[in-house]
Every structure is written in C-alpha cells, then in structure tokens.
Amino acid sequence: MDIPLQAVLSQAMLGLNNGAFYALLSLGLAVIFGMLNVVNFAHGAFYMLGAFAALLGFDYLGRFLGDESLRMSFWAALILGPLIVGSIGVVVEKTMLQRLYKVDHLYGLLLTFGLALIFEGVFTNYFNVSGEPYNGKPEILEGAFDLGFMFFPKYRLFAIVLSLAVCFGVWYLIERTRLGSYLRAGTENPDVTRAFGIDVPMLRTLTYFLGVALAGLAGVVAAPIYSVSPKMGSDLIIIVFAVVVIGGMGSIMGAIVTGLALGLLEGVVKVFYPPLANTVIFIVMALVLLWRPAGLFGKEA
C-alpha cells in the first residue's frame, strides 16, 4: 500500500480529537456506573444539553432578556455549561434515580433511556433534528498551528489539551484524594462506608453531578466543532458505550486510555480503509469481550 505518512499522522490527530471526547464521556459513564450501579443512558442527552447551554447562552439569552448584545461567552459557557447540566443531573438523581439503586440495573437503564428520549424530543420540537451551528468560538482559537506534517486547527488542539487536563484532574481526584477514597470505598461496600460515618447518599448525588457535568463540558467543547443538534448525543453515545465496555466498566484509567486509543485507531483506520472506520471500534469490542470479558482494565470477577 502506498499511503503517505503525512496522511496517517493527520488522521491520527483528528482521531485523537475524537478520542478526547470519547475519554471525557466514557469517564463520566464509568464514574457513574462504579458508584451508582446505573448504566446512564441519558449521558448522550446531557452532552447535548451542554452543547445547547452554550448555544442558547450565546445566541438566545440576549434576545430572551431583551438586550441583543448580551451573550454568554464561550469561556463562561465552559464553566456554566457543566454546572447547569450537573444541576439538572442532581435533580434527576434526587427525585428519580435514588429510588432505583436497590433494584436491578435494568430499571436505572430504562429510566435514563426514557429521560434521554424526553430531552431529545423537547429539543427536536424547538430546534429541528438538524440543529444550528454555534458561533461563539473565541477569536483566539481561530486559525491553525503548523505541526510540520499538517495544519492543525487551534481549537481542536485546545479541545484535546483541555479534555486531557480534565481527565487527569478527575483521575487524581478519585485515586489520590480523601474524597476519592470515600468514593472508592462507597463503590466497593456502601454499607460499611455508611457505618463509618460517611454520607453515602450524598456521595452518590455528588458522583452523578460530576459524571453528567463532564458530559456537559464535553458538549460545550463540542459545540464549535460539530453542529449543535438534538441528536448529537445519541449518535455519539453508542460508540462511548463500546469504549466503556472495552476499557472495563467502572475503571477510571481504563475509560480515559481506551477513549483516546480508540479515537486514534478510528482515525488511522480511516486512512487505510475508510468504510471500516465506523465499525472498527465494535470489532475491537467483540474481540476484547471474547478475550477479557471484564474489559482491558476491569477487574476479573
């Protein structure tokens, strides 16, 4: 095969960019599954809500308040988007999810799937399936860097660096801090953790907040790259679920590394045999499940 190295490297960079989103989203899913035992099917919807928070804040907030010049900047959205989405998550957890921890996984899955459909339906009603472009990309992130082998958009590099930083921050929080040791203990044995005087229900709410806020952040970061549409989450979430399964349910490092690696793989495969690019992740998933059913980083039961 005669494929220039340059093409491989450029696709690898774009793949890494997708991988950064996979990592952010699968990290949230893994944290939620570990602590709450809930397969959060609403994760894609929360990602979509994050993107819409950025869009609405930029294009609609001023109109709504009667002052067209009033806009929520991209930087403000980076902070407020995750907080808004996380708060919606807290309401969901406190009013609904909380009741389902003691019953089968399936109930949490059905509830969150239903919520995802409701969020998507509401936004489709107002914004159509096609969605709208986000115009708030800050000027400083316009243009591209010369990486030698390609011109790489500054914004995409920013997205990669930001999500890597956030992923590492979350890993540190969970694996190296006192709060993290409470979370790990609460995941492993909630009863004993409670008996030690740790407020486990509170930890669960906090975990759900953190998990969906990560999805919200991914949504805000995605807004300037992909068009903001009600379906953007459900398209992505299937791949993200595959990532979590490959990495191992509930493994923090597994989610991050697998997310990045699979984004990379997808990008590189696109150069060699484009039709395979959309399927390769699922082929990997099938192989991993045959070889290590608990996932690459999961603990064997």
């Binding site: 790990r184 044995n189 409670r194 005087g197 486990v200």
Partner: peptide, 27 residues
Amino acid sequence: PTHKIAHLGVGWCPEERAIFSSLNVEE
C-alpha cells in the same frame, strides 16, 4: 441515618472484616 450514628462515637468491625481492596492499608 446510619452515617450519623457513627458520629455518636460508634465503631464497627464487621464479621466479614470488609477491608477495601481498592484502598491500600494506610488509606
């Protein structure tokens, strides 16, 4: 609620010991 009872000054050593595998000895 359970987590408040501990704060009355109760320590429990459960039958199954419940050492956390995701934590090292000092943790």
